[in-house]
Amino acid sequence: MTIAGWARSLAMVLAFACAGVAARAQDAKGVVTDPAILEKNRKENAECYGCHSEAGYKNPPRADMDMVKLRALLHDPAKFDGSNHVGMNCKICHGQPYETYPHPAGLKQNLSPCSECHATKSLRVEKQFEDSVHAKNLKDAFTCQTCHDPHVYKVAQKIGDPRVIVAQDNQMCIDCHNSDLRYSKFSAQLSTQKVRPDLDTLHKWLPNARLHWQAARCIDCHTPVSKVKSLQTSHEILAKDKAEKNCVACHSQQSQLAARLYRYAATNAAADLGFTNPSYLGSAYVIGATRNPWLDWGIIGAFAATILGLFVHGAIRVVAAGLRGRRAS
């Protein structure tokens, strides 16, 4: 952490402590809950959005602004309010000296690293990330923000609905893996440049690939099951040769998806109706995993009874025919 980073962290702690609101200003997860702080942050963020939003871009407060530069620095207030960081002040991450225009040079270097707030998580994530294909190929060029846009991203636990989780998380992957422009930007940093492989061709072996992409996350196959219980979604992204290709890993009663994508969906299902993997019921039918043991046993029983009945019938026919033959002779 840089000296500026330490100073900023210290200032944050002092600010909360001095106001005497530290205990009620945040919930257990560190989300700001104090209405006065929320209102203060909303007002201060509105000043940033005055330029750094679509509306600000269309009606800039000054005529001398670098509009080309600004175009690349726009954020959607609605999306931010739906993100994990809702309620936070822009300056918590971006630092203080933004009051003047043009802003002082080199501010980007002062941006707080994610680990400044997410210290414990970062330690665990980093270990998994080091083994990922991204870390091996791109090293430091690949950061948390490469996938997780802090202005938009929301953790799965807070989303709950698996379909929404899938849409958000897969978008992070296809932003690069389905974009020649973005892919080549990263590929340029490799010793031997790579041409972006076509996703449909890569997944040709997978039946109904596009259907899978709507119902499951890329990472559900492209990460190992994490050994860390509290961090079941691993950040060790696997290349295609190591990714899960065993269909029954998900398509069986012991479906892995229950502990991954559907980890937070259990409470969403209205009723389990006796089905296996009941957390799936509200959003998907997964062949092999969504089963009703009562129905299965009923059908197996019907087959067993029919086959047994036919065997008995056949046996009686054979015996009866034998007896008739003996009687006739």
């Binding site: 072996w205 997978l206 039946p207 109904n208 065993n246 269909c247 029954v248 398509h251 069986s252 009663q253 012991q254 062949i287 092999g288 089963r291 299965d296």
Partner: peptide, 19 residues
Amino acid sequence: SLHFADPELKLVPFSLATT
């Protein structure tokens, strides 16, 4: 094979059974 898919059961492999 698809409905009763299970790592312990020797059924038609899932992907092949689907096709």
